[in-house]
Design a protein around this nucleic acid. Sequence first.
DNA 1: TCCTTAATGGGATTGATTCGCATTTGCATG
DNA 2: CATGCAAATGCGAATCAATCCCATTAAGGA
Lengths: 151, 151
Amino acid sequence: MAESNRYRKLLKKENLRSTNHRQSILEALEGFGEPVSAERLYLALKDKGISISLSTVYRALDVLVEKNIISKTDFTDNNRSLYEIRQEGHKHHLVCIRCRKIIPVTGCPFHDYASRLEEQFDFSITGHRLELFGYCRDCSVDENSRSDGQA
Amino acid sequence: MAESNRYRKLLKKENLRSTNHRQSILEALEGFGEPVSAERLYLALKDKGISISLSTVYRALDVLVEKNIISKTDFTDNNRSLYEIRQEGHKHHLVCIRCRKIIPVTGCPFHDYASRLEEQFDFSITGHRLELFGYCRDCSVDENSRSDGQA
DNA sequence: TCCTTAATGGGATTGATTCGCATTTGCATG
DNA sequence: CATGCAAATGCGAATCAATCCCATTAAGGA
């Protein structure tokens, strides 16, 4: 209840109508705590017994991204977009190229690098995205056995 | 001629048949010197009077990526993949969010950062991708006038 | 030159995302 | 609390990059 009130305020502040669906979406995203696809979010909502359309999920995600309440990332590969609640301070990700696990990493050492580039190229940098690919603990252990984890 | 011979060797080395199409694709990619979509590449080849199918373009790009001869990047936004000849030492990009210009940047200060993360998360990093977004020289000048460059 | 196998054409298909439009809902106002 | 209107929603159709299928062609070693 206190939760849903927080979402309500958040939406209000951005001049968005505080609909049940938008609140559910925010709540679910916060629950996940990791980037999820629109479809996974949709299914999770269904599981909770919430009746919602996939279009609505996409549209809600769009406005939330636009208002900077959540962030959207497109990793290479299966080209599906993933969404997550925007945290304080931006994050990067460790993406396991085997099991597809995504480990969020806080902190970013690149601000000075960025400003150097700004001077060099007369380019005004407003944001950046960094993803690191490799093998997570589990997957690097048995990197040889092949036929399991592939989604 | 010398050029096409170079491509031939390159393909041979990777155990790929050195077809005319693959050579044309490499040549065209080198000509562009910037990341291009499969479709743009396809149209460029057509313009040169080369008869080729879009499927073939996609397939050739796939193998070339697999062999590490070219690289594929998916910037957010219109989620189209872009391809470019892989340079010595990897590169990052400055992506203008207004006119979509892409400025390649050589050099990368992140190796120590990466190894720190490897220890911290017991994650074996095999690669990374960094893109920086913002406004290029031309676009930051008249950032106010709005109705032009939007692709 | 011949043969095997990889590469290709091109049309159909997939799959994520978006669109169109009729219906419903949020919410400001009286 | 009733009313009106714009914003939000549902759901099916449409879009669009990318992939697949399979019959045909070309590469390159013997």
